[in-house]
Design a binder for these strands. Structure first.
Length: 592
RNA sequence: GGCGCGGUAGCUCAAUUGGUUAGAGCCCCGGACUGUCGAUCCGGAGGUUGCGGGUUCGAGUCCCGUCCGCGUCGCCA
């Protein structure tokens, strides 16, 4: 070891000790006759003094020339700082190392930015020079947090008799759901592997194989557009269990959530976590991942709308649509007409709403709005009553299809809560959303799609509706929601042939197609498949949420940009003709 | 693919209605300095305003196209 201690380690009790430290030059204060260096590693910062009498003029001179972010080694004696010269900001602030030896292990060119600078550089620069960015305190904290969370998960599942099994990265494409990342085969011309979107099928087969409790920290890949909380390459804690029902899986994860919150954040999370059905979540919050850290619940006023003369409301209600709204407490004074216009533009542009109706609750308790003259007083009173409106509140409504009112109001809810500061950043709100529909209808083709995946088991009680009323058929599915974000999702799987056939039939997957795509799974299911189910937890999102961050890139060491590029390695990149030829590929266009 | 925001010195930003030689702080370079910890003081260097085209007497500013980054909708079984 080149060093005897880290830069975050030394205290008053170490005074008098001869130490050797290594690290990066965070900053240098050159006084001519003496030089102060803040020496940094991932454990902390220690002040090094190169001055007389320990250091001679040559050494002081050399130290004075060292550039920021150089890697140096110093040897010296731990010394208590002079009276009144301690630095309260540093854990090591009571001491300094008076150095008699100073050595540059490796210099540093002038960096485009330094890890300690207060103005964070643009994200493209941070990504291009990720090795510098990762030296920043915040990034180091995030990486440590991530490591701790993964270790907590592994420990927890090991305690519960789970075994870790690795499944292949090179698999076969099952062209449902997200787009696959494809890998051409050299040995099999015109054939492709696909990178896994999840180890779903393998883990089910592991159940058939008798590994009744499986986990894996699994890299997954989906070739879809990115978001602040979505990367094309991400990590899941993948889990599958035999002989369990949905309660068992949720109960197990409840324990993990509580343990992780306790060990990582020192927070108590009460279990069992609250559960809400999909239907209730959509009705009350318009979202299958509701943020329960604040209220502003959605209220349906369609019955009142039917009675009013206001064409937009009445027309929508009469034609099978919905008029639903939210109460924004004490917001009347905070939102100008102009700002409400912006909200209107937002719901139009992002959710396809036709407009935003709103009312202000006046001093006298009446509702005022540009459209209020279209309403009779008694109907306004009814609306106010339903929404629980009080003086100073804003009531906002969408009149539209169920889907648009859900999405639009969920979006408004989220945006308003953020703008009004209704969210306690310290809160960690965890809950379950259950009983998702088995199927949803493709708008264009009118065909049924599996909402989760085609191996999801329906609720026992809904089995009769599977064939004739698929829209009413609910799944044994459960999503873990943390602070309004989907942090995991799973299902109990179908383990009998008859139900599986029925589901395939409904999805328009004929026997031949099923055989072609998932034959290996169907085959395995014939050979003694136990009842089983599982879940996948989004590790990147867990870390992001536990860290209180709003961007997943902040917890991933080497993330991709919105165009799925790596600015540091410049992946993806072109390859030479020989490589393509070996893979039996020709490209239609040459990239720029 | 749609909508929106942004791109000016190595970095973070400014630049009035289109108007003189595009500024500031930090960084960097040179010098001074033994108690700093955002060191201080003196001096200096540093610009194809992302790129291409257009309008204009004149463009960082206006228009068109394009590239890049971010947010979001679609998409993400």
């Amino acid at each position: 070891m080149l060093r005897t201690h880290t830069c975050g380690q030394l205290r008053k009790s170490d005074v008098g000790t001869e130490v050797t430290l290594c690290g990066w030059v965070e900053s240098k204060r050159d006084h001519g006759g003496a030089v102060f260096i803040d020496l940094r590693d991932r454990y902390g910062i220690t002040q090094v003094v190169i001055g007389p009498p320990e250091a001679n003029a040559d050494l002081i001179n050399e130290a004075g020339r060292v550039s920021a972010e150089s890697v140096i080694l110093i040897r010296g004696t731990v010394t208590e700082r002079l009276e009144g010269k301690t630095n309260e900001k540093l854990d090591t602030g009571a001491i300094e190392v008076r150095s008699e030896h100073f050595e540059v292990l490796n210099g540093c060119e002038t960096p485009p930015f330094t890890p300690s600078q207060s103005d964070l550089p643009g994200e493209d620069l941070r990504l291009k020079y990720r090795f510098l960015d990762l030296r920043r305190r915040e990034m180091q904290r995030a990486m440590v947090l991530r490591s701790t969370i993964v270790k907590t998960m592994r420990d927890y599942f090991a305690e519960h008799d789970f075994i870790d099994v690795e499944t292949p990265i090179l698999g076969r494409s099952t062209p449902e759901g997200a787009r696959d990342y494809l890998v051409p085969s050299r040995v099999h011309p015109a054939n492709f592997y696909a990178l896994p979107q999840s180890p779903q099928l393998y883990k089910q087969i592991l159940m058939v194989a008798g590994f009744d409790r499986y986990i894996q920290v699994a890299k997954c890949f989906r070739d879809e557009d990115l978001r602040a909380d979505r990367q094309p390459e991400f990590t899941q804690l993948d889990l599958e269990m035999s002989f369990v029902d949905a309660d068992d899986v949720m109960g197990l994860i409840d324990g993990l959530v509580a343990k992780t919150a306790k060990e990582v954040l020192g927070k108590e999370v009460r279990t069992p976590l609250p559960r809400m059905t999909f239907e209730e979540a959509m009705r009350r919050f318009g979202s299958d991942a509701p943020d329960l850290r604040f209220g502003m619940e959605i209220v349906d006023v369609t019955p009142v709308a039917k009675k009013t003369e206001f064409r937009v409301f009445r027309g929508t209600a009469d034609s099978g649509g919905f008029v639903r709204g939210i109460t924004v407490k004490d917001a009347a004074a905070k939102y100008s007409r102009r700002q409400i216009d912006e909200l209107t533009e937002y719901v139009k542009a992002d959710f396809g709403a036709k407009g935003l109706a709103w009312f202000r609750v006046e001093e006298d308790g009446s509702l005022w709005s540009p459209i209020s003259k279209n309403f009779e007083a008694e109907h306004l009173a009814e609306i106010k009553e339903l929404l629980g409106g009080e003086t100073g509140d804003l009531l906002m409504f969408l009149a539209d299809s169920w889907e648009v009112t859900c999405k639009g109001l969920a979006g408004l809810r989220k945006r308003l809560a953020s703008e009004l500061g209704l969210i306690d950043p310290e809160e960690l709100n965890c809950s379950w959303v259950t009983e998702f529909p088995m199927f949803d209808r493709d708008e264009e083709t009118g065909r049924w799609n599996a909402m989760h995946h085609p191996f999801t088991a329906p609720l026992e009680s809904d089995l009769p509706s599977l064939k004739d009323k698929p829209q009413d058929c609910r799944a044994q599915a459960y999503d873990l929601v943390i602070n309004g974000s989907e942090a995991g999702g799973g299902t109990i799987r179908i383990h009998d042939q008859a139900t599986q056939s029925d589901v395939f039939e409904l999805l328009g997957i004929d026997a031949e197609t099923a055989e072609d795509r998932f034959g290996f799974l169907l085959n395995a299911l014939k050979y003694g498949a136990p009842p089983h189910g599982g879940i996948a937890l989004g590790i990147d999102r867990w870390v992001m949420l536990f860290a209180g961050l709003e961007n997943i890139r902040e917890v991933i060491a080497f993330p991709k940009t919105q165009k799925a590029a790596d600015l540091m390695t410049e992946a993806p990149g072109s390859v030479d003709k020989d490589q393509l030829a070996e893979l039996h590929l020709r490209t239609a266009k040459t990239g720029k």
